[in-house]
């Protein structure tokens, strides 16, 4: 084989060049077709709280040892109730922080007294496993201020989210990376 860059035009070189031209045309066509379908910013996974059915699979289906999904508290939506149905199990013995009264399996919700009769509920993310038990309690009877979100300090942003694949409510959506949370806000209607 010659080391001279000006190779003679033989069948092989010609076919090679034709294939390259065809392939580059293909690449160009692909680019053009996708031009309107690209997002410069990229996307991340997030849970649409309006679609979440609290099936509990977030706690187990994530590829991470401890799920990237955690409970988030929208304080502005919270009623600060003394009897919090996201904190207390059904029919609590008394409204105290005793473990047997709590709904959370890992005691990840901290209840602090503010003033009569209001209590603040705070999620300790280190303990939260994303099981959605509190979310269910809060949504079923309360204001729905507790909800699940993908925490992006933990999420590795898999190409195909393993939780999205099994999500019972089909609540996982790709959101733009610069607005990565779907936080709940206060109810708009009266």
């Amino acid at each position: 084989m010659s080391t001279n860059p000006k190779e003679p035009v033989n069948r092989r070189n010609f076919l090679g060049a034709a294939a390259r031209v065809a392939a580059m045309t293909g690449v160009g066509a692909l680019l053009g077709k996708l031009a309107g379908a690209t997002a410069a910013k990229g996307t991340v996974w997030q849970i649409d709280p309006a679609k979440c059915v609290r099936c509990g699979k977030c706690a187990t289906a994530c590829v991470l040892e401890q799920s990237a999904v955690k409970c988030v508290h929208a304080y502005a939506v919270c009623g600060y109730c003394e009897l919090c149905t996201g904190y207390f199990g059904p029919e609590p013995n008394e409204l105290t922080t005793a473990a047997e009264n709590q709904l959370c399996p890992t005691a990840a919700i901290q209840r602090t007294y503010i003033e009569d009769p209001y209590y603040q509920y705070h999620i300790d993310e280190k303990l939260c496993i994303g099981c959605a038990k509190c979310v269910d309690g809060c949504n079923r009877y309360g204001n729905g201020s507790l909800f699940l979100q993908v925490r992006h300090d933990r999420c590795v942003n898999c190409n195909e989210c393993a939780i999205a694949r099994v999500c019972a409510g089909d609540a996982f959506v790709r959101v733009p990376v610069d607005q990565p949370y779907l936080l709940k806000t206060k109810p708009t209607t009266s």
Binding site: V44, Y75, A76, I114, E115, Y118, C155, L183
Partner: peptide
């Protein structure tokens, strides 16, 4: 709130992406 309690806002750690 009468005690001057301020509503915290939920944290939103930015994605690495």
């Amino acid at each position: 709130f009468e005690s001057g309690y301020q509503l915290p806002t939920p944290t939103t750690p930015a994605p690495r992406a």
